[in-house]
Amino acid sequence: MANNISTVNDTQTVLRTENLNVYYGKFLALQNIWLDIPKNQVTAFIGPSGCGKSTLLRCYNRLNDLIESFRAEGKILFYDKNLYASDIDPVEVRRRIGMVFQRPNPFPKSIYDNITFGAKINGYKGNMDELVERSLRQAALWDEVKDKLRQSGSSLSGGQQQRLCIARAIAVQPEIILMDEPCSALDPISTLRVEELIHQLKEQYTIVIVTHNMQQAARVSDKTAFFNVKTTESGGRNGYMVEYDATELIFNNPQQQDTRDYVSGRFG
């Protein structure tokens, strides 16, 4: 039996990354990451393509384990437990730390069954109708779909589908929601709805978002980490974290020149 992940801790740090190095085979994709994710705040990862933002995000719920060549050194602590310890069940990690992907990916099922699917797998014993309504309300979607719960999730608009995926993530009662460019495939109005939803959700969840949209990072996040890429002597390109601070400081008074150049649009 895998060891359960405890949540008894006085600190407000939910995820602590210590000296993390991520490899795909011999390729060092992400180097020497030290980063604390605060509880009930939105943390944004920004930086140019290939700097390891999504790689780090997927380390947090062990989705990279599904890549055969993946290897991680260092620690990621979820409260007091190392997520990569031998006694930790990756399936339990993914329940506690949910993921919303770049493109909406509703299951080929009804809206109702999209919400209940994970709950059933995880042995939820409560009232399914109440779970569906509560999850859809939290995702600001209930009023739009309450009369068509038996319709296919794919019948919804792109923005509605993404909120359905957020509701699906919420339904299994995670503590953290990871969002990998959740608005990149959406129109401006749908993007605004998701951003408003993120503001509401942080009251109950810790959120980590990867975004290429710096205006979005400035709007939705409390803290921002800027990642960049450096070229090694052998010609490889390693991702690393340049700076991490309150979002207001990252955008208005960054300490590193590379951060200033990126947020001012000089590269990226």
Rank of each mutant, 00 (worst) to 15 (best):
K75N: 09
T55N: 10
Y205D: 14
G25V: 12
P174R: 05
V132K: 07
M99H: 10
T55A: 09
S54K: 07
P104H: 09
N127H: 11
C59Y: 07
A185E: 15
A246H: 00
L149W: 09
Q138L: 13
F227Q: 05
E233N: 13
N19T: 07
T259L: 06
A119N: 08
E203C: 12
V91D: 06
G126N: 12
G126M: 10
P108V: 08
G265E: 05
D89V: 06
L77E: 03
T206A: 13
I76H: 05
T247R: 04
G52L: 11
I5P: 06
L15R: 04
G153K: 12
F226Q: 03
G126V: 13
K146H: 13
I198D: 00
E68N: 03
P188A: 11
T259D: 06
R168I: 10
R219A: 14
N21L: 00
D143N: 15
T206V: 11
V132W: 08
D143C: 04
R62M: 10
K109F: 15
G265K: 06
S135C: 04
G239E: 12
G239D: 11
S69F: 03
N122M: 10
A171P: 07
Y124K: 08
E175Q: 12
E248Y: 01
H212W: 08
M214P: 06
M214W: 00
S264W: 02
I33D: 01
G235R: 04
E144P: 02
C165I: 14
F78G: 01
Q215K: 13
R193C: 04
R16W: 02
L83K: 03
P104G: 11
N32I: 00
V14P: 04
L131P: 01
N127T: 05
S264I: 01
F27Y: 13
I170S: 08
Y112C: 07
T206N: 11
E196F: 05
S69T: 10
Q12C: 02
I33S: 02
A217S: 00
V208A: 04
E233P: 02
K81S: 15
L186S: 13
R16G: 07
T231L: 08
D258H: 08
N21V: 00
Q151A: 09
F226W: 06
L192T: 15
I67E: 05
D147V: 06
D113I: 00
I115C: 10
P90H: 02
T259G: 06
D143Q: 15
F45K: 03
I250Q: 09
Q204W: 06
E92H: 03
T7G: 05
P48A: 09
E130T: 11
L83C: 03
K39T: 11
L197D: 10
P90N: 06
V194Q: 04
F227A: 08
N238K: 07
Q102H: 10
E195L: 04
A185P: 15
E233H: 03
